[in-house]
Simulated scan of single mutants.
Amino acid sequence: MNADFPRILTLLRKERGISQKQAAAELQISQALLSHYEKGIRECGLDFVVRTADFYGVSCDYLLGRSPERTGAQLSFDDIPEPDSTGKENTLKGSILPTLNKKLVFNALNIIFDLLQNINSKELTTEVSSFMSLSVYRMFRILYGINPKNEQTLFTVSPVVASAKALATMAVCEANSNVIANELIAQQPELKEKLYMSTQTLQQDYPLFTTSLLNLIKNSETTINK
């Protein structure tokens, strides 16, 4: 069994709001054995995995950590909604500040990822994407941690070290991005001309997004200078 199984098994039980004793009875095993499964002390058989998946209404792939989707679906390009898709999750009520900053960030990201597409480097795209993802991860964990009742088993990295480790990994991603960019310039000198940018060229190439990027730069440097 893998390391994800005990964590997800515990998470599902706590989300259901039942004790180990109740869950063990439903799953037809002893509480002691379930405790061992949840702690990763013992490995279970395939029949228990299937029985557990049926009990919690998830797929075996999700239970084993093979898919982040409870149905076991694998994420494809077409499954990812556009950032401006309409829907409940996209409706921000109350203060205008979150909506404003969301637009600034999303519009600036449109420019960054379009530039990455033009550069066409898988390695650079991976490093930049990892840096952005880790930034979102760190902020989400802060918001998630506001309520101490939220189950920490959602995460595999301890909250004691998660922020520091994520920040360190972001520094590595940034360093790798610099190295890859310099290597690309050495191998493809024409990239310098291709990626020449000024306020004017940005506004020509990205008329819808440049104002957001410029405001984001200004806001960021104001924050840095504080």
Rank of each mutant, 00 (worst) to 15 (best):
M1V: 09
A3Q: 10
A3R: 13
D4E: 13
R7I: 13
I8S: 00
T10V: 01
T10M: 03
L12M: 06
L12C: 02
E15I: 05
R16P: 03
G17F: 07
I18G: 03
S19D: 05
A24R: 03
A25F: 02
Q31M: 05
Q31T: 08
L33E: 07
Y37K: 04
I41M: 07
C44K: 00
L46S: 12
V49M: 09
R51F: 06
F55T: 09
F55V: 04
C60M: 10
D61C: 06
D61K: 12
Y62H: 08
L63V: 05
P68W: 05
P68K: 09
G72D: 03
A73M: 03
Q74E: 11
P83S: 01
D84E: 08
D84T: 14
S85W: 13
N90Q: 13
N90T: 14
K93T: 14
S95N: 14
I96K: 13
I96E: 13
P98Y: 05
L100A: 11
N101A: 04
N101T: 13
L104V: 05
V105Y: 09
F106L: 15
F106M: 11
L115Y: 12
N120V: 01
N120G: 02
V128C: 00
L134I: 06
V136R: 15
M139E: 12
R141F: 04
I142C: 07
I142M: 12
Y144T: 05
G145L: 07
P148I: 10
N150S: 08
T153V: 09
L154M: 10
T156Q: 14
T156A: 14
V157I: 15
S163V: 08
S163K: 13
S163M: 15
A166V: 06
A168I: 14
T169W: 03
A171G: 04
C173K: 07
C173F: 02
N178D: 11
V179I: 15
V179L: 12
E183P: 00
E183H: 12
I185H: 07
A186L: 10
Q188D: 08
E190A: 14
K192C: 11
E193S: 14
Y196C: 12
Y196R: 12
M197A: 11
M197W: 14
T199I: 11
Q204V: 09
D205P: 00
D205H: 10
Y206P: 01
Y206G: 00
T211M: 11
S220K: 04
N225P: 00
